[in-house]
């Protein structure tokens, strides 16, 4: 079993503090959902864990099986087993999706142990089929001219090909219609198992109808303010966030306001 542990995490962007002490522990074989209204720091949490260049960690720790993640370069974090399905993936002109994926897979392998072309193609074909992606997407330039939905599927394709220990899905459901949502969920569910843990960031409950979380956390004002089981997501769906704000005496849940 592997463990991703976030303790007292404080993060700034351009001098403004967004995260104000996040604590969260995820084990493999668990799926956690982080929910909360817009502007409460959810995506910042995802980006800070992966090492986005604009986010500065000012206090706290992130460890993966005891290893200090924050000390690692971004590529080392990936090699250690982290993956972030991004909300706004970059477009890289002139680099085909397939070439990129092969480079990424091989970067985790020793020299001489590279994945064979045949095996790669077989695996790529089968994952693309699961995600109902057109085969020609493999030869298109990475994310260039992809629709919103195609980009999301492509993020999940990378997840399935790279098989990380922990995946963070940053609003993978935004902009997806119900059919695409089902397909993306199918991909994530296929990853579920003893060697995989997942943190799903969303502000809608609907994705959680297809991927049942083990734990649900609510973020407000840059902290996790409430945690529970899947029933918490149901309650949020039915009643919204106001009851939590009342319970905790929060007037404005967004970052920058104090309780």
């Amino acid at each position: 079993m592997s463990t991703l542990e976030i303790k007292g995490l404080h993060v700034e962007i351009e001098g403004k503090e967004i995260l104000k002490g996040v604590d969260l522990t995820i084990n493999t074989n668990e799926i956690h959902a982080v929910m909360g209204p817009n502007g409460t720091g959810k995506s910042t949490l995802a980006s800070a864990i992966m090492g986005h260049p604009k986010y500065v960690v000012t206090a706290g720790t992130v460890t993966l099986d005891g290893e200090d993640v924050l000390e690692m370069e971004v590529d080392e974090r990936a090699k250690a087993g982290l993956f972030l399905a991004m909300q706004y993936p970059s477009e890289i002109s002139g680099v085909t999706n397939a070439d990129f994926l092969r480079s990424a897979i091989n970067s985790k392998r020793e020299e001489g142990e590279e994945i064979s072309l045949m095996k790669f193609i077989r695996e790529l074909d089968s994952k693309m089929e699961t995600l109902e992606m057109n085969q020609e997407m493999a030869q298109r330039y990475l994310n260039e001219g992809f629709s919103g939905g195609e980009k999301k599927r492509n993020e999940i394709l990378q997840l399935m090909m790279l098989k990380p220990k922990f995946a963070i899905l940053d609003e993978i459901d935004s902009g997806l219609d119900i059919d695409a949502l089902k397909v993306v969920s199918k991909g994530v569910n296929e990853m579920r198992g003893e060697n995989f843990g997942c943190l799903i960031i969303t502000h809608y409950q609907r994705l959680l109808n297809y991927i049942t979380p083990d734990k649900v956390h609510v973020m407000m004002q840059g902290r996790v303010v409430k945690s529970g089981g899947p029933e918490l997501a149901q309650k949020l769906e039915a009643q919204g966030y106001d009851w939590i704000k009342e319970e905790l005496g929060i007037e404005d849940e967004t970052v920058g306001q104090e309780a």
Partner: peptide
């Protein structure tokens, strides 16, 4: 950042 987040070195 995007490419490195997939394990590719700088």
């Amino acid at each position: 950042y995007y490419l490195m987040s997939r394990g590719i070195s700088r």
